[in-house]
Structure formats: structure tokens, C-alpha cells
Design a protein around this nucleic acid. Sequence first.
DNA 1: TATCCACCGGAATTTATGGAAG
DNA 2: CTTCCATAAATTCCGGTGGATA
Length: 351
Amino acid sequence: MIADRSVFGDDHPPQELLHREPAVAALTRAFEPATHGDRADDVLIAGPSGVGKTVLATHTLGRLQQRADIHTAYVRALDQSAAGIVRNVLQELGADPAMNTPLEDLCLALDERVDRPTVVVLDEASELPRSDALARLDDVPLCSWVAICHEPTDWLARVDDRVRHRVVGREVVLDRYSVDELADILEPRVRQGLRGDPVGRDQLERIADTVAGVARAGIQTLLAAAEIADERQHSRIRDADIEDGWPRAQAWIRESNLESLPFHHQLLYELIRRDGPLRGGALHRRYDEIADDAYAGRARTPVQRRARRDQLAKLREYDLIECEGSGRGAEYRVCDASIRSPYEVAVPPGQ
DNA sequence: TATCCACCGGAATTTATGGAAG
DNA sequence: CTTCCATAAATTCCGGTGGATA
């Protein structure tokens, strides 16, 4: 049934953006000055994860690039410093700045390189307000940015006044898709990625409903349901395949999250998976007991408690562990105990 | 209920890394 | 090669706080 898995990848853009016309129009308007060689307006795109914020930005920019002489850069801001972000922008523009180039020099190099309208997409920019990267980009005359975050109100409250005034009131806020809209979005993927006539409209709607209008989850669930239908030798996707496809899709997302993290995080995760739910104190004691063995033969060495707390916060952010209660009494547990670290983490049994 | 203690998380400080300049 | 420098990651320090203990 599955003809081409790559059709379901995050990096496989749709040929046309369905049901985002107002957002495309707003972005196009903001980019308009760039078509006559001027600086584009800055933009803030906000909305829950998986509803197409990144696709909206790159798709619209791609179309602009076809009819205007501009440069674009795509950077994952995450919790990078201003220097890290400016350095990444330079790399995207074809420069090769050294790791230890001072922020000031990076900005000068950027100023020199930007010789035409340049739009920088800053994805995963929720922590961006902590650095002054946006102000740095705004200092470059022809350079504008598109920041992508989850919570626009919170984000705007944390940025510098000068930066806020550039985007406030013109935020592009995306919401989850309706069942009908998401079913429309899934249809082309069925045609391109699956063989035969494997799924009906009512089932696409069922998928859309299951994932509550989150496009990324819908696409992954469609693929998972097709995979399960294959395993069960169904010629068409059945309701039960969709039922079981959703948790499988969730597991894929979590697995790739866990895989992307360094060993420290994965060790903490494995401790919680094996011995959780655990309170902070108990977790730290377990770590101290097994750390020497677990890190034996690895490039990294055990870290202190304060660093572990930051790593636990990262695991929560990635939806790998959850925390019941707050502060001192908080209890950690993994979200899905069937998800394991790809490292063979040697964790001797507790007690 | 009062006191104590361990943990949390912000901020300052130190260490590690990897180029570049001398 | 050595020294220098800037960043990123980790450590140290510490005030605040919520659970534990009497």
C-alpha cells in the first residue's frame, strides 16, 4: 500500500498550501517591499506545533524568491545566543564564520553580505526574546525576519519595545485545522504516497478528528495507519488501523525527539523510564549511584545536579517526560514507557 | 503549627573547545 | 608552537519554597 514514504516526511512540502489563504496574503503583503528592492516588514507567526507555521513561511518565501531578487535564510533559533543565530544566518548566506568570531564582527560581516533584501526565518523562536538577535538583524538595513513561536502574547511581552512595535498588531496566528480542512490536506498525500484506492474520505476525516486538526500528526497517523494495514494485509485502511496508527505516530515523533538529544538527557530518561515515577531527590541519588558505570568509555562525563535539572526541563519540553505537581514535590514519569533510548544505556536495576 | 531541610531555578562564575594571531 | 580570545556548557552560589518532622 505504501508507495513512497518520503511523501510523509516533515521535509516534503505540499505543492499548494490549502486553507491558509489569509495567512499567505498577510505574509505576501509584509514581503511586498522586497519586490522593489526595499527592506521587507518583520513578521511574527504564532500557533500550536504541527499546524504548518514553518511550511507557511518557507512556501511563501519560495514563491517570493521566484519573482524578486532576494536572499533568504532559515535558522532554528531554539535557545541559541545572539551570536549563534547571527553565525547561522551567515552560514545560510554562504559565509563561513569561525566559532570564536565575536558577535560584533559577525554583525559587521552580515551587514557586508546583505546587498539586497534578505528575509531570515527564525524557527522555534520561543526563547528568542532572551537574546538581542532580532535587534541585531534589524540593524542591518535590508535584512528583515520572520519569527515563529507558540504563544504570541507571551512572546511579545518578553521582547524589547523596539522589536515589539515592528510586529505588534500584525501577528499571523495559525490555528488548528477543521476536520474538513485537514482531510483536504491529507488527500494529496494519499495520491502521491499510497498505492491504489486505500482510504475513503470519511476515514481521512476520522484521522483529522483523532489528531484534533494538527496537520503534522495527521500526516504521520495516515502513514502509520497505512503501515498497519499492510502488516494486517488489509487492502484498504480500516478504522481499527487508524485507531492504532495514532499511538504509533506519536511514538515516532517522541523517538526522533529522544534520538536528537545528547547522552546526558537519554541517561536521565532511561532512569525515569525504568524506575519512575521518581521524585527529584531519588532520581539524583540513582544517577549518582550508576553514573560512573553508565559513562564508562564515553566521551562525556557525569554532570552535577544543577545541569541535570536543565536537562530534565529539556526532556519535558520534548514531550518525553511529564511532571506531576510542581516545585519540590514534583514527580517525574516518562510519557510513553515503550519509547527507549537508542543508546544502550546500562542502567542496573534499582533497589 | 512551627521549624527544618532538600530541592528548585536564576544568576554569576568557571571550564572546555576550537580557531586565529603572533 | 604558544598565546589569546569568544562562545557554549557546566559548575558554584544562593534565595525562595514546599514537604517532612516533631
